[in-house]
Amino acid sequence: MNVRIHSTLLAVLVTSAAVCGACGESTQPANAPAAATAPATNPVDPATAATITGSVKLEGTPPAAATINLSSDDYCVKNATTKTTRVYVVDAGGLQNVFVYVKDGLGNLKFPVPTTPVVLDQQGCWYAPRVFGIQVGQPFNIVNSDDTLHNIHALPMSNREFNRGQKLKGEKYQTVFTVPEVMVPFKCDVHRWMNAWVGVVAHPFYAVSGAGGNFELKGLPPGTYTIEAWHEKLGTQTQTVTLGAKETKPVAFNFKI
């Protein structure tokens, strides 16, 4: 009898805990901030800071963008910012949406954590931006600018996975990432074509290739660095760069299809 009562209580507790796990669409961070040990000031001497200017090129012809079937949501049919896939965004031979960051070479340097939130918007049934970066501990806001339902489902390997529903236009959810991880994918399970990726790093030296595939990493202390470039389909490439004081060096990545 006791065993039966205990089993029942256990089942009720487990179920209650599970149900409460889903309670509340709060705007509280899902993860504890990890920026408590971050210094207040940048350790890099601005008088010696160096810069990497680079570009990402695409060699070969990317497949034509495929038309996406948006018919599962009338709102998206009417308001989608584009109706084709966005895997390869090429501009004058330059490949956009490549995340470039310092993978190695900063040693034990600690950097201040920005308090300005990085924003991931759900707009026109797409994520904006598609590829972006953030520092560990930096506030991360996810907003829904669409007048339809989205769920934001993060699928990290090292950080905590989360899945939040946003049913109202203007709804916001704030969280932080607690450990570096390149890349953390996001997807919307409501709209299967919606994907985004964030590179979570412990420093401010990251960029996403933009117009012409160009990028810039500013304010680096002199030293030798491993720079990695990541693309959602084409994978990663790395290069080693040695920077002297106040030096500006070009780095070129060349992805092939």
Partner: peptide
């Protein structure tokens, strides 16, 4: 792959 398109349970988007 719609299993998580409704993130809450037993409610549905509240």
């Amino acid at each position: 792959e719609s299993g998580l398109s409704v993130p809450d349970w037993p409610t549905t988007y509240g």
